[in-house]
Computed example of a mutant assay.
Amino acid sequence: MSGTHTDVPSMISAPLPSPVPADEHERCPVTDVLRRVGDKWSILVIVLLGRRPYRFNELHRGIEAISQRMLTRTLRALETDGLVHREVFPTVPPSVEYSLTPLGRSLLVPLSALADWAVEHRGDIAAARQASTSDT
């Protein structure tokens, strides 16, 4: 939060040019993170790994509708972003375990806040959607 507007979230009080340039929006770190966690599987993978480390096949079995390819892509992207740690164990065949990094763990707090907000307001959102469809 800004020092002068303690009741206004920092995201809202930050100055923005008008109009917001497309390249600035694309380079924005908030936009980047929201793209990552806003994909179909990342939040679920992060939440599961927030509970404990998982082996690949165990994680795959724990997410009913995800393909092996999509789980691999999701884990690689989260690893590239520094949110997930991949550890290979020297067994025959090699086994791999995934866990959250400290950076990934730090994301659990804001994700939990967003989840709490969504659960708290799901009735309001459903009512607004219903009203919107009945207006057309």
Rank of each mutant, 00 (worst) to 15 (best):
R86M: 12
N57I: 07
I63H: 05
L83G: 00
L78H: 02
S106G: 00
S2V: 01
E64A: 13
E97G: 09
L16N: 06
L107T: 00
L103Y: 01
A14S: 12
R36C: 12
D23R: 13
H85L: 14
I125Y: 11
L44A: 14
D135E: 13
Y54H: 02
L107H: 05
E26R: 14
R129V: 12
V8A: 08
S10D: 12
P53M: 07
R122V: 09
R122M: 15
H5Q: 13
A118V: 06
S18Y: 14
P29S: 00
A115G: 11
L108I: 04
A22C: 08
E79L: 03
P110Q: 06
F89C: 11
G104D: 00
L111V: 03
H25S: 10
Y54Q: 00
A127C: 11
S95R: 15
T101L: 01
V119Y: 07
V33F: 14
D124G: 01
S67L: 05
K40I: 08
D32Q: 13
H121I: 03
T31W: 02
P15V: 08
D135T: 01
S10V: 13
I43F: 12
H5E: 12
E24Q: 13
S99H: 02
E64K: 07
E24S: 11
K40S: 11
A22D: 03
Q68A: 07
P93M: 05
L83H: 02
P19T: 04
L16A: 10
V33G: 04
T6D: 03
P94A: 14
A113P: 08
S134I: 03
P29H: 05
M1W: 12
S2L: 09
P93A: 08
V84I: 07
V20S: 01
L108P: 03
N57E: 10
P29Y: 07
Y98E: 03
D124L: 02
E120W: 05
P102L: 10
R76V: 09
Q130H: 12
P94E: 15
T31H: 08
E26P: 03
R35P: 02
M70S: 14
S132E: 14
T101N: 12
G3V: 06
I63P: 09
R61C: 09
A115N: 10
T72K: 11
V92I: 13
D23V: 00
